[in-house]
Nucleic acid binder design. Structure first.
Lengths: 164, 164
DNA sequence: CCCATTTTAGTTGTGCACAACTTGATTGTG
DNA sequence: CACAATCAAGTTGTGCACAACTAAAATGGG
């Protein structure tokens, strides 16, 4: 029974809809998962010179854009919570790229700002996007379309989760 | 200097192409990352009843389809190595869903097969895909298109990585 | 003014991803 | 046959994601 359950698609004349769903679904959930990991893999190679991981790079991107931010705001921008960010920021601080300090006006808040080294890293990082873009083999228009589709998908998934 | 570097897009009359790249690129890499995590979040909720995590569910999917497989083959199908699979399979075995045994013909290989409980879990799992499909808010055609795009992207990223 | 509630970071524990390495079995070639 | 090269799993160590929790500060209603 367990040695040969439900083999290849089917032998029957019509396929039950649930089977069809299972297959399609398997493919979409797996392909997104795989694409995400393939992306990290390429980033791992490209970011090696900078000494950054992919999530660390995302944090640096928002800091390069904004200069300094409270941890809370970084979390909102990157959709990450303190359980992920606290140790990550600690590692960036240990690497001398950022500085963390309690806000004086609100002692609950911690402000993260770039150090001189962190700011300087921006220059070599400028070359990263083009290398990644080349690796994807997508045109700018395709990138935009895919991004929009993924953003809509994320919003749909997030709101579906709330109503569960 | 570090307090306000490179603020908003620009103040200048023409934007340097690297800046444009940085922005677009930021968005695509972030959106894929976020979509992947949003997906896991929905799966986490839906799979809770089955007592499976998302990666465990992927392994169960290929086992439900093939009945039994060597670890090596599972890794090929899911693009995962033994460093990820060994402990994951150990947890599935501890949960009584699979059984692992050294192959008699090749002592290097370990064959993973479903236990009766693992096979039985297939029935309630049939309802998962529809729930996920509803959460995505996508039509079947959109799912197919997105999946194809992501698969092409993964292939492009993987081959780009090899030539690095 | 006081205290319950909320907010912000941080901590702990579990699981996944992956590089680098180890162990033991198999294969191919001299 | 012998032994180097290869191969399959597993182990170790690092980092990310996230749920659940704690600690400390701020806020707001009575």
């Amino acid at each position: 029974m367990t040695t040969e359950p439900s083999t290849v698609p089917t032998g029957g004349p019509h396929r039950p809809p649930e089977e069809e769903y299972l297959r399609l679904h398997h493919q979409i959930c797996f392909s997104l998962h795989a694409a995400s990991r393939a992306f990290s893999g390429v980033y791992r190679v490209v970011l090696k010179d900078l000494g950054l991981t992919y999530p660390q790079y995302l944090v640096m991107l928002v800091l390069w854009e904004h200069g300094e931010l409270p941890v809370k705001r970084i979390g909102e921008l990157l959709r990450l919570d303190s359980g992920t960010l606290s140790p990550l920021l600690k590692r960036l601080e240990a690497a001398g790229l950022v500085h963390r300090a309690r806000s004086t006006e609100d002692e609950r808040s911690v402000t993260v700002r770039l150090t001189e080294r962190g700011d300087a890293l921006r220059e070599p990082a400028q070359r990263v996007p083009r290398r990644i873009a080349e690796a994807t083999g997508l045109t700018a228009a395709e990138v935009t379309e895919l991004r929009e589709r993924l953003t809509r998908l994320t919003d749909a998934l997030d709101s579906a989760r709330l109503t569960d």
